[in-house]
Amino acid sequence: MRPVRLIFGTTEGAIGAVLLSLLVLIALFAPVLSPGDPLDIAGPPLLHPFSMARLPLGTDSLGRDVLAGIIHGTRTSLTVGLAAAFAAIALGVCIGLAAGFSGGLVDEALMRVVDAFQILPGFLLALALVSVAGASLPVVVLAIALGAWAAPARLMRAQVLSIRERDYVAAARVTGMHPLEIAVKEILPNALPPVLTLAAVIVAAAILTESALSFLGLGDPNIVTWGTMIAEGRNVLRSAPFLSVLPGLALVVTVITVYLVGEGVTQALAEGKAGQVDRQGPTA
């Protein structure tokens, strides 16, 4: 597992990887860590943190356990962040590959669509889509992905354009490989790595967008999200500011973690590339 070792080799990567594993574990074992529905009433309302051992972070204005909300919210944030980033990158890679590989009019038309999505404020688009299709988790994921796929598409196209003219692609063409096979087998794997380094930024932005949507009341009402918790805490901001502050801190820690992992991956990739060049040194 050389890539993993490389990521752990950087300070940012190591801290990020440890924190991310912790968050993933919390998300996976949320039902074990805090059994039951986090939306159920667990105690007296507006209990301040550290005043009851059973409810260490207190309760909100309806008496729901804040700690349970934060634990289950990890699940929502990570799921939405990862799913939206995956969808955005998958869509971006497909469009970028199609545009860069076909060239000509198809390229021109696809890139105008990319332009359009880059000009549209992603958050407004997400607002519109969620309000149109109703607030449910898949819609939120799709809405966030629609605002995020333009950058990977652009990068993918640039990659494909530079790879398309390489010798090994020409060789594949000469051997009579089907263009589709060339695109998928020869170009895609070589064009992908730089696009994947965008993943961390997209995941982080997706987590922030999801929280903003649910803060505005456009999240899935049956699922705990940090954004909703912050919004509900807003009504009692004067008497119980912790209700908004604590889930916000969870958000900040999660986003920082994702950035750190991204930083680690980028540095590891750069080093890996440098290592390759060194090894190839004399021949290349």
Binding site: A204, L208, S211, A212, F215, I230, R234, L237, R238, P241, S244, V245, G248, L251, V252, V255, I256, Y259, L260
Partner: peptide, 22 residues
């Protein structure tokens, strides 16, 4: 800058208004 970059705008707004307005 990394920490600031990770803060959601609406949450920072709430925290600042707790401190400076409330």
């Amino acid at each position: 800058s990394l920490i600031l970059y990770a803060i959601p705008g609406f949450w920072l707004g709430l925290v600042l208004s707790i401190v400076f307005a409330v």
